[in-house]
Design a protein around this nucleic acid. Structure first.
Length: 871
DNA sequence: TTACAGCGG
DNA sequence: GAAGACCGCTGTAAC
């Protein structure tokens, strides 16, 4: 049996992986797609080859050139893009951690390293497999040297294998002749000039016939296409240079030690740590044999004796930090003891070796365990759980002052992630991997333990970043406020909603018929694809924009066609109505509970900017702009004896911008309660204040919005249907009028580029990794985000403060009125008729005094018998 | 699951 | 010269 060595062309494979694997980023913002793809290929090769030796070669500094003189003559190659460049040192560290030999030698190309090592090993009697994405290496193939070229096709890597015979079969020439083919045809990517007028076909034909360029030159007169014949003679020097350039040096002076390349066990502890940091979950499974024994798991205990449990609760009550988890699994106790809440097990952790999981049972029913947890929640300094809001219904004694929601803390530290599960936090903060297939009891223990162990770490990180006050004073109290709001819910008239839906349905059927008639065919109007075909192919309407998959049928496109084509107007109406029916009429109805109310969810750990989001259903996008949609709000009603009070901030984001930028003019204007949009119009369009037209004011309003969104001339031109040039002029005028704003936005972007994040008035951070991207579009996006996030985020902070204040004061004063909805800059209260005046005073004061800015915060309020009237 | 469309701030 | 307003959620079609 011959021994085998695998040689990997590091940069070439990394490059392949980079372009073959979609962009991945770990939670630190490090790009990892090339590393991930590289490791996938590496493991695949190792599984297949099972080599005794393994080496990865790298160029010392990429890009380098085989022949410097030529590189200088031809100019330089493009520099490596940043996203790939940053991954190069990391893959080297990972390989080192896996005990894999890396060879790099200054002045030598990877090809020359591969060629030389390959030849040496073959002479020593080894089989060689060279892994490279570069077809140049095919010249190295022999009977014992196999060239393997990986290809990534739709997420799967397939490998093409070439021994010498395979090269001959596929290319019609031997590996040695392959060099001569290349010398003739050239290679632009390698800066090999070749012979003009000779492409792949001709080159192969010539070399198949004559074997080498030297022999071809000797018989130049006979060569078939006259152009090739002439050019080989005329460009003979260039052909020779090309051959030198194309030839891989197999006798380079390098120190290669076969013993050092011995391939051992790559699944080391260090490698495991790297894989965790890089968040390669599925690659980590390769380590499971080696790392399954985990120190913390040894301390996980299941407790079924009540006496023992009571001792533990007593001890736990004296601890400083208590992590807790409530889970559904009850260890299969009799259904008799199943609790209506669905929970069957309490797990607590209050020390590294103090992790106890207690299933409910005859002795300890779930209500008993809830009671104990409540007691503990009142005693310890940090009562820590994941997603605390979810459990407040069974742990009503928890208080904002000493509660620690791990999910919320993890969100504050990085609001860009999708999940903040205990698995994620354990991995990121504690460097702990949790087996997905673990027993429910073990998982519960991990959840409680992670809550316990991560609390101190997260707290310290928040303190370091100046966010701990945001956490304790805003986010934690808000958990409880949102819980109250969800519990309260909002009353919806189911009958009226149904009637509204039926009305829409009737009109939709009519429109459908008319549309089919005018189109001369039936089709699915809800399918943008089918609609595009009907309108722009069959009916030959002038088509504007296109999307990836076909014609755009978006409203702004159809709007332009509507005046000329009745069918388009009908489609627009159809779209509007079916949206209202499916999303709102039918969509909302399914959420009405037995109490006649909708209890939607308010999510605190979703948005990148700090806003709250609303789901199941989304109550933050109920129609209001169009009258027909707005009517839906009539079905949202206060309960018997109550009215709605709706309060919304007037232009809160622009006011925050005025405050943050310190722009004198804008601040003064707000202090004098002037019409900001009119004033902006007057300045930007050089028109006396009193002579500003409605159109000018509308445009100025759009500019003001644009500024908040991180203005661009393109975006503004789209919004206003004007040219880019005009939009750019507006913006220029705007910045001349308000130089403070220009300065503020520039400073904010500069800070973001420097630090990698932006920050709100109350210390909330948003990382902006896009600013480091090499992609123009991404970087521009990063700049807009940097300008917008502090403004939108500060507004969110202020609203949260107001919500907490309103909710608390209502409770403290013993009022029965309740805060029930938040829509970003608007609060809705269900107020008892005899409390209305007092509640209005509280609302206005709490909202307007939530923050002390250099400009006044103004709140507008309305009352009504339903949401339509109150808004 | 992804793309498109459309509702809100 | 590129492709774009910022932040969300839901429903439908089509893969």
């Amino acid at each position: 049996m011959r021994e085998k060595i695998v040689l990997i062309d590091g940069h070439s494979i990394l490059n392949r992986a980079f372009y073959g694997v979609p962009d991945l980023t770990n939670s630190e913002g490090l790009h990892t797609n090339a590393i991930y793809g590289f490791l996938n290929i590496l493991f695949k090769i190792l599984d297949e080859e099972k080599p005794q030796y393994l080496t990865v070669t790298f160029d010392v500094h990429a890009p380098t050139f085989r022949h410097e003189m030529y590189a200088e003559y031809k100019g330089t190659r493009k520099p490596m893009v940043e996203e790939l460049r940053q991954q190069v040192p990391v893959i080297k560290e990972v390989l080192q951690a896996m005990d894999i030999e890396i060879i790099e030698q200054a002045g030598l190309e990877a090809d020359d390293l591969l060629g030389t090592i390959s030849r040496t090993c073959e002479e020593k009697g080894l089989d060689v497999a060279i892994i490279s994405g570069d077809r140049d290496t095919l010249q190295l193939a022999t009977e014992h040297v196999k060239i393997r070229i990986p290809k990534t096709k739709q997420g799967r890597t397939e490998v093409e294998d070439y021994y010498a015979a395979d090269v001959k079969e596929k290319y019609g020439v031997t590996p040695t002749e392959f060099i001569d083919v290349k010398a003739l045809m050239g290679d632009a990517s390698d800066n090999i000039p070749g012979v003009p007028g000779v492409g792949e076909k001709t080159a192969t034909k010539i070399i198949t016939e004559y074997g080498s360029i030297e022999n071809a030159y000797a018989h130049a007169a006979e060569i078939k296409p006259p152009r090739a014949s002439k050019n080989i003679q005329e460009y003979w020097d260039q052909a020779c240079l090309s051959k030198t350039l194309a030839t891989i040096n197999t006798h380079a002076e390098i120190a290669f030690d076969l013993d050092a390349a011995k391939h051992g066990n790559p699944y080391t502890k260090e490698a495991h740590d790297y894989f965790q940091r890089l968040q390669f979950k599925n690659l980590l499974s390769r380590f499971d044999v080696e790392t399954s024994e985990n120190e913390v798991e040894a301390f996980f205990h299941e407790i079924t004796e009540k006496k023992e449990a009571e001792k533990i609760f007593e001890e736990a009550g004296k601890s400083e930090t208590l992590g807790a988890a409530l889970t559904e699994d009850n260890g299969n106790v009799l259904p008799l003891f199943a609790h209506p809440s669905g929970y069957g097990r309490l797990t607590i952790a209050y020390g590294k070796s103090k992790v106890y999981s207690i299933p409910c049972g005859p002795d300890m029913e779930m209500d008993y365990l809830f009671g104990k947890l409540c007691e503990l929640a009142g005693k310890v300094k940090h009562f820590s759980m994941f997603d605390l809001k979810k459990y407040l219904t069974v742990v009503p004694d928890a208080k904002p002052e000493n509660s620690f929601d791990v999910t919320v803390a993890a969100y504050l530290l990085n609001p860009l992630k999708n999940d903040y599960d205990y698995e994620d936090v354990a991995r990121e903060q504690l460097n702990l991997m949790i087996d997905e297939k673990a027993e429910p009891m073990v998982k519960a223990c991990y959840e409680a333990y992670t809550a316990y162990a991560a609390t101190g770490i997260l707290k310290e990180k928040m303190q370091k970043q100046g966010m701990y006050h945001l956490f304790t004073d805003i986010e934690m109290p808000l958990v409880f406020t949102l819980y109250d709001m969800e519990q309260a819910g909002i009353k919806v008239e189911a009958e009226a909603l149904k009637f509204y839906g039926e009305q829409l349905g009737g009109r939709i059927v009519e429109l459908e018929k008319e549309i089919y008639e005018e189109a001369g065919e039936t089709f699915n109007i809800n399918s943008p694809k089918q609609l595009g075909v009907v309108l722009f192919d069959h009916m030959q309407l002038p088509n504007g924009k296109k999307t990836k998959t076909g014609y755009s049928t978006a409203a702004d496109v159809l709007d332009k066609l509507a005046p000329d084509y009745p069918i388009v107007a009908k489609i627009l109406e159809y779209r509007q109505l079916s949206k209202l029916k499916s999303t709102y009429a039918d969509g909302l109805a399914v959420y009405i509970g037995p109490d006649g109310r909708i209890h939607g969810k308010f999510n605190q750990t979703i948005t990148a900017t700090g806003r709250i989001s609303s789901t199941e259903p989304n109550l933050q996008n109920i129609p209001v702009r169009m009258e027909l949609g707005r009517l839906i709000r009539k079905v949202f009603v206060p309960k018997e004896g109550c009215v709605f009070i709706d309060a919304d901030y007037s232009q809160i984001e622009l006011r925050i911008l005025a405050h943050c930028s310190g722009d004198e003019q804008l601040i003064q204007a707000y202090k004098e309660a002037r019409d900001i949009h009119r004033m902006t119009a007057s300045q930007v369009f050089h028109t006396p204040f009193d002579e500003v037209t409605d159109l000018q004011r509308r445009n100025a309003k759009a500019v003001n919005f644009g500024i908040v969104y991180g203005i661009s001339s393109f975006g503004l031109s789209q919004d206003l249907s004007i040219t880019r040039k005009e939009a750019a002029q507006y913006i220029e005028n705007y910045f001349e009028t308000y130089p403070g704003i220009k300065r503020f936005l520039d400073d904010t972007v500069a800070h973001a580029k420097e630090e990698g994040y932006v920050v709100t008035l109350f210390g909330r951070r948003r990382p902006v990794p896009e600013l480091k991207s090499s992609n123009f579009m991404q970087r521009n996006f990063g700049e807009r985000v940097a300008m917008n996030a502090p403004i939108q985020g500060s507004a969110a902070d202020i609203m949260k403060i107001a919500m907490i204040g309103v909710n608390q004061e209502l409770k403290e004063k013993g009022l029965k009125s309740k805060l029930i909805l938040q829509v970003h800059d608007e609060l809705l209260i269900e107020a008892y008729e005899d409390e209305v005046e007092e509640v209005k005073e509280i609302l206005k004061r709490q909202m307007e005094e939530a923050a002390d800015l250099d400009v006044p915060l103004i709140v507008d309020m309305h009352t009504g018998e339903n949401w339509y009237e109150a808004k």
